[in-house]
Design a protein around this nucleic acid. Structure first.
Lengths: 207, 207
DNA sequence: GTATGAATAAAACAATCGTTTGTTTTCGAA
DNA sequence: TTCGAAAACAAACGATTGTTTTATTCATAC
């Protein structure tokens, strides 16, 4: 009865539910019910629940990462051996993730930020494989940008940047803390968030 | 056979396992086996698995929060109506958490940072009840410190700070990213981490 | 038309889950 | 010593988990 897009419908449903309740707390029966497909379809198409998760994550972070590398290549080619402007460097790392995840894939940020904090068998290695080279290049470029900082300082500040970014990505999942005088429209705007995050991290790297 | 400290042994074991595998992925049987107590002891002492989690979290974040309030009271009294130094303010928010969690409770950071990203029934409200007043006071003090920033800017940057802090707290759980030239001793030192985080967030708030 | 293979469907699999039961042990107060 | 509440225990509860099996549908190639 359901169309030929069973696989994609499973992925969509899984994304929604993983974002809502997390991976271990979501059952295949909930997923297949939301996707309106048969229970066995998950194991047929993905081999296992873990396989579903891996394909979902890979489908999301790989394009983000390629975009980062593309922008970094372009910026370094244009700079012609000169160090990049720090703010540009930070933006190259942050923007593709925020853009892709907040605009195209509304619920994926929650999934990803959760997975960063909830290790899963084989998933850390997958993340490291995909993200490792990018991070190495980014740190190296940052070092050329801020030669007075030690490798340890650069590394741990890169870590802080990732933390701030992941926390931003998870923002839509939480209740906003009631702060008097805050305009919710302003703070919900992705461009505002992106610029604030870039400013925060750029200053933080150099501070 | 086991001593009269059953409750504490359950809390300790739960903390360890929640940090390793996360709350939903940890079974009561694993906990009670590690704690060397009977399975039914959890429901006897805590009412339910959720009750165990709540007591564990509460036991951890409440002293941190009280210490933050205490330091904030002292600093504001000493300043006598004058705005605080931003760096001092940031430190008051960050230091009690890093100190308590990294030195006394080795595995609790993982649990907490995970819970921040994996909502659980009734736990968000508990966190908000405990942390809400502190955050309000902190934002207000920050506003006096940086009157040229809008409430939206202060709020979202406070959010970034929390993200960076949680990510730092989770640092010991992860593999360190291989960056050439990094001295692992330096980067493992809590004082170094604390100072770096304070510098990063202080600069980020004003940047 | 018939055969072939992928996709879907229904049903059952063994295992594990959190929880509850009824009983036994422990230990200080009466 | 006796009593009784608190604690610990073994055992089982019903429900749900991921997975597998078996059968059916359906389009395409012969």
């Amino acid at each position: 009865m359901p169309g030929p897009d069973t696989k994609q419908r499973i992925l969509d449903a899984a994304q929604t539910l993983f974002a809502e309740r997390g991976f271990p707390a979501t059952s295949l029966r909930e997923i297949t019910k939301l996707a309106d497909v048969n229970l066995a379809a998950v194991n047929y198409h993905f081999g296992s629940k873990d396989g579903l998760l891996k394909e979902l994550v890979n489908e999301c972070i790989e394009p983000i990462n390629k975009e980062r590398i593309r922008q970094l290549d372009a910026a370094e080619a244009e700079a012609g051996g000169q160090p990049l402007v720090l703010r540009d460097l930070v933006r190259i790392f942050i923007e593709p993730a925020v853009r892709e995840m907040c605009e195209e894939n509304g619920s994926m940020p929650c999934v990803l930020s959760r997975l960063h904090h909830e290790p899963h068998a084989g998933l850390e290695e997958m993340m490291a494989d995909i993200l490792g080279p990018t991070i190495s290049r980014f740190i190296a470029a940052t070092h050329r940008c801020l030669p007075h900082r030690t490798p340890e300082e650069l590394m741990i500040r890169g870590h802080f940047m990732v933390g701030a970014m992941l926390h931003l990505l998870d923002f839509n999942c939480e209740e906003l803390m009631p702060v008097p005088g805050v305009n919710k429209e302003v703070i919900s705007d992705y461009d505002f968030r992106l610029e604030q995050l870039v400013s925060f991290c750029t200053a933080g790297f150099d501070g």
